[in-house]
Simulated scan of single mutants.
Amino acid sequence: MGVAGCGKSAVGESLAAALGAAFVEGDRLHPPENVARMASGEPLTDELRAGWLDAIGGRIAAAIADGQSVVAACSALKRGYRARLLGFCPELRFVYLEIDAETARRRVGSRKGHFMPASLVDSQFATLEAPTADEPALTVDGTGPISDIVAGVLDELRTKTS
């Protein structure tokens, strides 16, 4: 989880591969209306995110019901969004990829073929409620190499399940 450009997809795909887990790309579950709004530079409201979060939560729950491990990439910017996802899977754990606004703008601005414009990065930071100690979340530096981030997350997961 985290703002646009923090590395959710890249880290999520690598983490899923390392765990032998299914991967859910949250961006692919946005309805066309949400994609069009973001592409035109309009940030999403809580109401517009609700169905999207439910689609992600549903995919997570379905994978678990099928006996699969699953990793999902989703911004989950607010505590309430994370609580909504936890409603689908109470044992869900979040990995918050923390980055600064300048890095996010640079990364989003250099992406090719993605609907999210760099002009929306500031709105992502304005919406962001970083996870607090009472949430099931691990905060990691999202600016490091993907392999290092994944190794750190795997170490943390092993520690918590031992």
Rank of each mutant, 00 (worst) to 15 (best):
M1N: 04
V3K: 03
V3E: 00
G7Y: 03
K8D: 04
A10N: 01
V11L: 11
E13N: 11
E13Y: 02
S14A: 15
S14Q: 13
L15V: 07
A16Y: 01
A16N: 01
A17Q: 13
A18D: 10
L19Q: 14
G20K: 02
G20P: 12
A21R: 06
A21T: 00
A22Q: 13
G26M: 02
G26V: 02
D27Q: 08
L29S: 12
L29G: 00
P31S: 13
P32A: 15
E33P: 00
E33M: 00
N34S: 11
A36C: 10
A36F: 12
R37W: 09
R37I: 09
M38D: 06
A39R: 15
A39L: 04
E42V: 15
E47C: 10
R49M: 08
A50F: 07
A50E: 14
G51H: 09
W52R: 06
W52T: 09
D54N: 11
D54I: 02
A55R: 15
I56M: 12
G57D: 04
G57A: 03
R59N: 08
I60S: 03
I60L: 05
I64E: 12
A65R: 14
G67Y: 09
Q68T: 06
S69N: 04
V70W: 02
A73Q: 04
A73L: 11
A73G: 15
A73C: 10
C74V: 14
S75Y: 00
A76F: 00
A76H: 02
K78V: 05
G80L: 13
G80V: 02
Y81F: 15
A83V: 06
R84K: 14
R84M: 11
L86S: 11
G87M: 11
G87H: 13
F88Q: 01
F88S: 14
P90R: 07
E91W: 06
R93S: 06
F94I: 10
V95W: 01
Y96V: 08
Y96R: 06
L97E: 05
E98V: 08
I99W: 03
D100A: 13
D100P: 11
D100Q: 01
A104R: 02
R106C: 12
R106D: 09
R106S: 12
R106E: 14
R107I: 03
G109L: 05
S110R: 15
F115C: 08
P117D: 09
A118C: 04
V121L: 00
V121P: 00
S123E: 10
F125D: 09
F125N: 04
A126Q: 13
T127A: 08
E129T: 01
E129W: 13
A130T: 07
A130D: 06
P131C: 07
T132W: 12
T132K: 15
E135T: 07
E135W: 06
P136W: 05
L138Y: 14
L138T: 12
D141G: 02
D141Q: 06
G142Y: 05
G142V: 02
G142N: 07
I146Q: 01
S147P: 10
A151M: 10
G152V: 09
G152H: 05
V153R: 01
L154H: 07
D155I: 05
L157P: 01
L157T: 08
R158P: 09
T159M: 11
